[in-house]
């Protein structure tokens, strides 16, 4: 039987979502200090992307089932 790597499992994918979401913290925090709109924008993109990937993955999996 073919072994899946951790990041190919559901928990693994959610781990990536969690890392992206929580990983946005330094960007969000320091965008103000660096006065960088780009850094803040990237932070929010990571935050919303990471969070929304969870319901998107769940819905697409449910559709496949």
């Amino acid at each position: 039987m073919k072994q899946h790597s951790y990041f190919q499992t559901d928990v693994g994918k959610q781990t990536i979502s969690g890392i992206l979401t929580i990983g946005s913290l330094p960007l969000l925090l320091f965008s103000r200090e660096a006065n960088s709109l780009e850094m803040g924008g990237l932070g929010l993109l990571l935050l919303f992307g990471g969070m929304l990937s969870v319901p998107i993955m769940s819905r697409s999996k449910r559709r496949q089932v």
Binding site: T21, I22, S24, L25, L28, L29, S31, R32, L37, G40, G41, G43, L44, L47
Partner: peptide
């Protein structure tokens, strides 16, 4: 935009 980013950062913390 700035307020949303900072409140989100507080939320993550």
């Amino acid at each position: 935009f700035n307020l949303l980013a900072l409140e989100s950062a507080k939320g993550i913390w």
